[in-house]
Design a protein around this nucleic acid. Sequence first.
DNA 1: TATGAATGAGGGTTCATTCAT
DNA 2: CATGAATGAACCCTCATTCAT
Lengths: 199, 199, 199, 199
Amino acid sequence: MSKLELNKKQKRDSLLESAFALFTSKGIHKTSISDIVEKSGVAKGTFYLYFKDKYDIRNLLIARKASQLFKKADEELVKADISNIFDEVIFLVDNIINQFCEDKSLLAFISKNLSWGIFKTSIINPSDDSDIYFYNIYTRLINRENVNFVDPEIMLFMIIELVSSTCYSAILYSEPVDIEQLKPYLFDNIKSIMKRHLA
Amino acid sequence: MSKLELNKKQKRDSLLESAFALFTSKGIHKTSISDIVEKSGVAKGTFYLYFKDKYDIRNLLIARKASQLFKKADEELVKADISNIFDEVIFLVDNIINQFCEDKSLLAFISKNLSWGIFKTSIINPSDDSDIYFYNIYTRLINRENVNFVDPEIMLFMIIELVSSTCYSAILYSEPVDIEQLKPYLFDNIKSIMKRHLA
Amino acid sequence: MSKLELNKKQKRDSLLESAFALFTSKGIHKTSISDIVEKSGVAKGTFYLYFKDKYDIRNLLIARKASQLFKKADEELVKADISNIFDEVIFLVDNIINQFCEDKSLLAFISKNLSWGIFKTSIINPSDDSDIYFYNIYTRLINRENVNFVDPEIMLFMIIELVSSTCYSAILYSEPVDIEQLKPYLFDNIKSIMKRHLA
Amino acid sequence: MSKLELNKKQKRDSLLESAFALFTSKGIHKTSISDIVEKSGVAKGTFYLYFKDKYDIRNLLIARKASQLFKKADEELVKADISNIFDEVIFLVDNIINQFCEDKSLLAFISKNLSWGIFKTSIINPSDDSDIYFYNIYTRLINRENVNFVDPEIMLFMIIELVSSTCYSAILYSEPVDIEQLKPYLFDNIKSIMKRHLA
DNA sequence: TATGAATGAGGGTTCATTCAT
DNA sequence: CATGAATGAACCCTCATTCAT
C-alpha cells in the first residue's frame, strides 16, 4: 500500500472512529457531520470524499462493531474447551452479553440499529473484509458432523432477536429485572429454541 | 361536554391522527411540526397548546395505538371460546400479528418505539384513561385460579420482546422467512417460554 | 368606591406587582405578558383591559417605585433633625443608596429605566396620584427662606444623574470600588455641585 | 493578507456596519439577525460564522465605536497646544460631546450600552487590537510628572458617568436644558471632581 | 367585564451540501 | 485530494394580539 493509500485509509478510519464515539455518546440524530469532521480534524468537504452521508457511516459502523463483538466472543470460545453445541451457543451469548455490560453505549448503538439483514448479508455474501466475521461462526456451528438443525437460519434469527431485544431493556434499564436475574430464563429459552430445531 | 370542550378535543384528536399518518408514512424524524399542523389545518402555535413537542405526541400515540391493538385482540378472544391459557396467549399473539400484517406501517411505528417501559407503566400504574387497556388483559391472565406462573412479568417480557422483534423482520421484509412460515416456530417458542415459567 | 371598582383596582394592582416581580427577577425583555397574567391569575385578555402593552406597565412601575423610594427617604429625613440643606440632600441620597443596597433588583430596574423626564413630569405637572411624591420634596428644598440656588433644576439633574449612574456600577458590581468606598467621594462631589449653584 | 482573508474581513466589517446602522436607527431589540444579514447582503448562516449572537456583535460595536470616539478626540488634543491637565480633560470631554451632537444616534447607542466594565477591561487588559484606544489616553493622563491624583480610577469613573448620563438627556431631549447651557456647569463640576482627587 | 383558545408572523439557530481555491 | 467559507432552506418555538363566548 502506497503512502498515499495509507494516508487515505487513516483519514477514513479516523472519521469512522470519531463518528462512533459521537453516535454512542450523544446519539445519531444529535450528531452532525460538523461534529464528526471536527473530532477527526479534517475539513468538512473531506467527509463527502469518503462517505455519502451520516447513515452511510452508521451502517458501516454497525457491521464493523458487531463483527468485532462476535470475533472476540469466538476467540474466547476457542480457548474454552467446550464440545457440546448447546453449551457453545450459550457461551457465545453469555460472552457477548458481558461485553455489552462493559460497554453499554455500544449496546445502545448496536441494538437500535442491528437488523437481521446485516447478518443475512454476512451469511449470503461473505465479505473478504476482515471486519465481517460472523459468517465464520455461523457456518462452523451448523456444519457439525453429528448435529443437524432444521431451518438453522430461523433458529439463529430467533435467538439473536430474543437476546438482543431482551438484553437492551435488562442491561440498560434493569427492566423488568437486571441482566443477571434474566440470564437463567434467557439461557433456558435459547436451549428450548435449539431443541425445537433439532432434526 | 360544552361545545368549546368538544372543539378542543377534536383539535387534539386531529393533531394526533395527522401526526400518526405522517409518522407512519415518512417517519418521525422526517416529520416536522409544520407538517403535522398543515395536515390538521390548524396554526403552528396551536400545536403547542396541546403537546410539548414531537416526542410528546409520539409517546401518546404509541400508548394509544398499542392499546387499541390489545383491545381489539382481547375482544376477539372473548368471542372465541378458549379455555386453555396457553391457547389464549397464542390466540392473542396471532390476532395481533394479523393486525400488523394488515397495517404494516402500524407495525413499523409500534415496533420501533414500543418499549417494555410502556407496558410496565400500564401494569404498575393502571390509568383510568380508556386508552390504556393492556393492564386488564395482563391481570386476567395471571390471576387464574388453576394456573400459577413463576415470575409472570419476566415471562411476559420475554414473549413480547420475542414476538415484536421477530415479527418486525418477518412481516416487513419476509426475512429470514415470511410470517406464516415463522408462526409455527414462534408459537412453539412461546409455549416453551410459558412452560418454563409454570410453578 | 363600589365593590366592583375595588375589584378592578385589585386586578390592576395585582398585574402591576406581578409585572414588577418578573421585571426585576428576569428582566423586562424576557418577561412576557403570558408570564404576567399567569402570576396574577387572570386571563390573558384581561391584561389589555388595563394596560396597552408591556412598556405601558413598565412606565407606571418606574414612577411608582421611584416615588416610594423618595417617600421613604423623606419620612426618615423628617425624623432626623437636620437643619442644613446640604446635609439634608446628603441624607436623602444616603438613604436612597441604602435602600438600593437592600434591594439590588430594584436598583437594576430603576437605574436602567429612570430618566430625568420622569422627574420633570412630576415637577411640572404634579399628579394628585399619591404615587408621585417627588414634587413635594423638590419644592420644599428649593423654596427655603435663607438659601437660594441658581438653576436649581440643573443642580438637581446633575445630582440625580451622578448618583444613579455611579451607584449602579458600585452597588451591583463593586466597580470601580464598592459603594461604601465610593460614598465619601460621591458626597463631596454632591456638595461641590450644590456650592457651585449657590446664588 | 490573502484574497480569501480579505474577503472574510470585508464580510465581517459589512455585518458590523449593517448592525450598527440598524441598532442606532431602530434599536437593538427591534433589530433582528434577519435584518442585519439582509442589509449586508449575505446569507443568514453567514452571520453565525462571525458572531455568536446579536449581543456579541453589540459588544464588539460598543468597544469599537467608543474607541474611535476617544481616538478622534485625542488626535485633536495633540494638535491643540494645551499644557494644563485640567484643561486637557475638559478639552477631551468637550470634543466628545461635540462628536455626540453631530451623531446623536451614536450617543444613544453608546450611552445605553457603555458600562464602566468596558473601560475597566481596556485599562486592566490593554488589547493590542487597534480598536481599543482608551488605555493610551488614560495612562498618559495619570502618569504626569508634576501631578498626582488620589484614586485616579474613581475620579475617571465619576467623570465618565457624570458626562455620559447628563449628556444623554441634554443632547437628545434638551432636558433640563440644552447641551450648550449645560456645559458651564458640567465643566465646573468636572474640575471640582479633579480637584477633590488631587494629592 | 372577563375569558383563554387560536392565531401566524417572526424570532433565533442549525446543518447538509456545494464549490472556488 | 483537500479545504472550509458560504449558503439558505428548514427547523422549533414564542408571543402579542384578537375575538367568540
